[in-house]
Simulated scan of single mutants.
Amino acid sequence: MTETLFRDDAYLREVTARVIQADEAGIVTDRSNFYPRAGGQPGDSGVMRWAGGEAAITEALKGEGDAILHKLAEGSALPTPGTEVTLTLDWARRHRHMRMHTTLHLLCSLIPGAGVTGGQIGADKSRLDFDLAEPPTKESLTERLNALIAADHAVSDTWITEAELDANPGLVRTLSVQPPRGAGRVRLVRIGPLDAPVDLQPCGGTHVRSTGEIGRVEVLKLENKGRQNRRISIALVEE
């Protein structure tokens, strides 16, 4: 089992950990600030260092059970089990994923009632697919997204029981990916105030602390991917 430090603090750029397992498939540590690929969000990359060695982490993946597998660059030396290591994120890449992920939640809030049929987060471009006959124009979505971002809404999380989620099925927007179950509780990400959130839905990914941190975004295009499937692609606008 790997303690998922990014769940409590998505801004931990570097942590120390101890190696539990090491082989060619990757390195499992007792704790990690690296997000493993899941739910459309890529796994983090960065560097692992230890006394006498270091290796590039090409991507973090889900291992067996609750383990996080840090996949090293091909041909890297491996730290032995029990070794203390330092895990350093490629912070620029992770932060772009956080900004993108929060933006996609805002996009959901602008298209109420439509289920999300797919999605992908990237550092340069991200997308969501909606079960929707006719989406708003990309110009109106761009304007409304940037208004929500400029309002600098707080982003927070809370936990509810699986029974509470079952009693509120409307919280789940994704039709293709369901919240992970089995632990007895589900994490909710809230954008905006407690009594009137802009968006509230189950999510295990990493997010910024407030929407103002995202910066300006642009809706790049709307695509027809089926009779009722509309793809909306977005990008961060770097000043």
Results as ranks from 00 to 15, higher is better:
residue 101 H to F: 10
residue 71 K to H: 06
residue 27 I to Q: 02
residue 56 A to D: 11
residue 48 M to F: 04
residue 84 E to R: 13
residue 76 S to H: 00
residue 62 K to W: 04
residue 81 P to Q: 07
residue 118 G to K: 04
residue 78 L to N: 10
residue 91 W to D: 00
residue 8 D to K: 10
residue 52 G to N: 00
residue 16 T to V: 07
residue 74 E to N: 15
residue 10 A to K: 13
residue 62 K to D: 07
residue 37 R to K: 15
residue 86 T to G: 06
residue 85 V to H: 11
residue 103 T to H: 08
residue 50 W to R: 10
residue 64 E to I: 15
residue 41 Q to G: 01
residue 115 G to A: 06
residue 107 L to M: 12
residue 57 I to F: 08
residue 48 M to V: 15
residue 60 A to L: 03
residue 104 L to E: 03
residue 84 E to Y: 09
residue 119 G to I: 05
residue 46 G to D: 05
residue 111 I to F: 04
residue 60 A to I: 09
residue 77 A to W: 11
residue 12 L to H: 00
residue 107 L to K: 09
residue 67 A to Y: 03
residue 96 R to M: 08
residue 107 L to G: 11
residue 99 R to Y: 10
residue 105 H to W: 01
residue 104 L to V: 02
residue 68 I to C: 12
residue 60 A to R: 08
residue 65 G to H: 00
residue 4 T to I: 10
residue 97 H to V: 01
residue 57 I to Y: 04
residue 110 L to Q: 04
residue 9 D to T: 04
residue 103 T to M: 05
residue 83 T to H: 02
residue 51 A to W: 05
residue 16 T to P: 05
residue 18 R to V: 15
residue 75 G to V: 10
residue 9 D to K: 09
residue 40 G to S: 00
residue 71 K to C: 14
residue 70 H to D: 03
residue 100 M to T: 03
residue 89 L to M: 08
residue 82 G to Y: 14
residue 114 A to S: 12
residue 2 T to M: 06
residue 70 H to G: 02
residue 35 Y to N: 06
residue 3 E to R: 14
residue 118 G to L: 07
residue 56 A to K: 14
residue 52 G to F: 01
residue 41 Q to P: 02
residue 46 G to L: 05
residue 89 L to E: 05
residue 112 P to K: 05
residue 14 E to D: 14
residue 74 E to F: 14
residue 9 D to Q: 08
residue 20 I to Q: 13
residue 59 E to C: 14
residue 63 G to C: 01
residue 27 I to F: 14
residue 77 A to F: 06
residue 10 A to M: 12
residue 122 G to Q: 00
residue 62 K to N: 12
residue 45 S to T: 09
residue 56 A to V: 15
residue 124 D to A: 10
residue 67 A to N: 11
residue 74 E to G: 11
residue 57 I to H: 07
residue 82 G to L: 13
residue 118 G to F: 01
residue 118 G to P: 08
residue 19 V to S: 01
residue 18 R to W: 14
residue 79 P to F: 13
residue 50 W to P: 12
residue 5 L to A: 03
residue 18 R to L: 12
residue 49 R to S: 15
residue 89 L to W: 01
residue 46 G to H: 05
residue 27 I to D: 04
residue 119 G to M: 05
residue 2 T to D: 02
residue 14 E to T: 15
residue 85 V to A: 11
residue 105 H to A: 02
residue 15 V to I: 15
residue 42 P to T: 08
residue 67 A to K: 15
residue 94 R to C: 12
residue 17 A to W: 12
residue 14 E to C: 07
residue 49 R to G: 13
residue 14 E to K: 07
residue 62 K to G: 14
residue 106 L to T: 03
residue 7 R to S: 11
residue 28 V to I: 15
residue 60 A to W: 06
residue 88 T to F: 04
residue 73 A to P: 03
residue 28 V to S: 05
residue 28 V to F: 04
residue 76 S to G: 00
residue 113 G to N: 06
residue 90 D to G: 03
residue 96 R to P: 13
residue 88 T to Q: 11
residue 38 A to N: 06
residue 90 D to N: 10
residue 16 T to H: 11
residue 91 W to Q: 08
residue 52 G to A: 00
residue 78 L to V: 13
residue 64 E to D: 15
residue 122 G to M: 05
residue 14 E to G: 03
residue 56 A to Q: 13
residue 107 L to C: 11
residue 3 E to A: 12
residue 124 D to G: 12
residue 104 L to N: 07
residue 70 H to T: 02
residue 106 L to H: 14
residue 31 R to Q: 14
residue 72 L to M: 02
residue 73 A to M: 10
residue 95 H to F: 08
